[in-house]
Structures are given as C-alpha cells and as structure tokens.
C-alpha cells in the first residue's frame, strides 16, 4: 500500500515537472546570476559532504542530494 502511494506520487511529480519544464528557463545571455558560485547545487561541495557525514552518523536517514559516504558512524 505504502509503496503504491509513493510510486503514484513519484509518477505524478515526474509528469508535472517534465511538462512544466518546457515553459521555464532563461536564454543563454541571462545566466549571469545563475553562474554565481552561491547559486550552484551545492554551492560548497566540501561543506555539504562534511554536514552529510555528521547527519549520517547521528541519524537513521541518509541520501537525498548525494551518497552517504564511507564510515561506520558507530558513535
């Protein structure tokens, strides 16, 4: 039951996103702000990796924006 709900939600989100994407965006000469370092995903990969490893060690969740990384987190 739960898997079917998650699957249906994912399918709906994907369809909505793909159909909406074609109407969004900017021209190549309008990317000045998007090219800034603070607008990148993630803006600081090193900081993101450090944070994710702490959360991985202290919480029962991981994933989302990347992979969990190595280490037992047994503390």
């Amino acid at each position: 039951m739960r898997r079917s709900v998650i699957g249906s939600t994912m399918l709906c989100v994907t369809v909505i996103l793909v159909s909406a994407c074609s109407t969004m965006g900017v021209e190549a000469w309008e990317r000045d702000i998007l090219a800034k370092a603070e607008m990148q995903l993630p803006s600081d990969p090193l900081e993101a990796a450090i944070d994710d490893h702490i959360y991985f060690s202290k919480e029962a969740s991981s994933g989302g924006r990347g992979f969990g990384g190595g280490g037992c987190g047994c503390n």
């Binding site: 969004m24 965006g25 900017v26 309008e30 000045d32």
Partner: peptide, 9 residues
C-alpha cells in the same frame, strides 16, 4: 533527479 532553471533568480 531533475534540475530546472525557472528564471534568472
């Protein structure tokens, strides 16, 4: 995943 630019900001 999918990444989408919406507008300049």
């Amino acid at each position: 995943g999918i990444t989408q630019v919406v507008n300049r900001n």
